[in-house]
Amino acid sequence: MEHYEEHHKETFRDSALEVAAGVERPPVVNPHYKRAKRRRLSADEYVEGILAGNITVLSQAITLTESLLAEHHELAQRIIERCLPHAGRSVRIGITGVPGAGKSTFIEAMGGKVTGLGHKLAVLAIDPSSERTKGSVLGDKTRMETLVHNPDAFIRPSPSAGSLGGVARKTRESVILCEAAGFDVIFIETVGVGQSETAVHSMVDLFLLIQISGAGDELQGIKRGIMEMADMVAINKADGDNVPRAELTKRQFLNALALFPMPESEWKPRVYTTSSTKGTGLTELWRGIEDYLKFTKTNGYFDRNRSRQAKYWMYETIDSELRDNFYKSPRIEPLLAEYEKRVLEDKISSFAAARELLDRYYSE
């Protein structure tokens, strides 16, 4: 039997259905071209550029703080130490909320309001990292099309990299660098409700929870810890037919917050209704933020909170370094697989295995 392809070729020899042979791949335009390596700036050049408000240098410095290379870590620490005396003069606001609450759209709308009042805004947007590939989309900038072109705004997306509470481990260092660059308002957008938000709460002056209405039981799925940490709640997407539901949700949250004990700041959390697309409620919310800052600075809580946060991150860094050194120890790393096998075979308890490994680590 004649093969179908040969029959098809003979039948449609002069037809447009015939597939033409491909052409050879063209050579490289310049086979001798080599990409020139970018010269690495010195610590002095980094600090000079940051203090001058150079966004490119600031971005490169933040990249250094996020790097896992030892040489980058050492350089980043020198830069941070030099920038530290120029930091601390900003308002740090943590923003979290349920997925779909419109956090990025809210930040863009509020960012335009803030910069319109003469402030310089830095947005540190934390994107979730994949547990499988460890990668992140980092797409927050694409949802802030207007703010990204604002000369008084700086947007930096960073991967969470498995960090607690959806906050990148180096976010606090990034805040210091942004403050040294002249940004006096810092927004830190977290991954969202569902994880422990202790990390972001321990690096901001005000914690803002974004919520929406019309999604069933408005308080369902919101952890009590999140509610207790919130200094303000914004019921977003309060526009059109959703306005009555937003007002109802506002009353529900006010009733829920009234059941909680008075926080250490002695500030009674407020609830606002906002619309990021219409721009309504944003002015009132910002006035509430200014009221909060004035209130906490007057009663001394603002400074006490900043001092406690600095202490918290010192111990947090110690814990992180100790954990990393333990797992990377040449004495411990070869033993981990052996102890894992013994635990899985019920030959030793998890607690006893951990104790033996720690004893070996500290005794040798």
Rank of each mutant, 00 (worst) to 15 (best):
V137G: 08
L138Y: 05
L138P: 03
L138D: 06
K141A: 13
M144N: 09
E145M: 14
L147H: 04
V148Q: 14
H149D: 14
H149V: 11
A153G: 05
F154N: 07
R156T: 02
R156C: 09
R156N: 08
P159K: 10
A161D: 12
S163A: 15
L164P: 05
G165E: 00
G166N: 03
G166S: 05
V167A: 13
A168D: 12
R169L: 13
K170T: 12
T171N: 09
R172N: 13
E173A: 13
I176N: 02
C178Q: 03
A180E: 01
F183A: 10
D184A: 11
I186D: 02
F187A: 01
F187P: 00
I188T: 10
E189G: 04
G192F: 04
E197T: 05
A199N: 13
V200D: 01
V200Q: 05
V204D: 04
D205H: 14
D205Q: 09
D205Y: 04
F207A: 11
F207K: 06
I210F: 02
I210V: 15
I210E: 01
I210W: 00
Q211T: 15
Q211D: 10
S213V: 06
G214S: 07
G214Q: 09
G216K: 07
G216A: 08
D217M: 06
L219Q: 09
G221C: 05
I222G: 01
K223M: 08
G225S: 15
I226T: 15
M227F: 06
M227A: 12
E228H: 07
M229T: 11
A230I: 04
V233D: 01
V233K: 01
I235M: 05
N236G: 06
A238K: 01
D239V: 07
G240I: 07
G240A: 10
D241K: 14
V243Q: 04
V243P: 00
P244R: 10
R245N: 13
R245E: 13
R245I: 05
A246F: 02
A246V: 05
E247W: 06
E247I: 11
E247S: 10
E247T: 06
Q252P: 00
L254A: 11
L254H: 12
A256G: 08
A258M: 08
A258N: 15
F260M: 15
P261G: 09
M262R: 14
E264F: 02
S265H: 08
E266M: 15
W267H: 02
W267G: 05
K268D: 11
R270I: 11
Y272Q: 03
Y272I: 04
T273A: 13
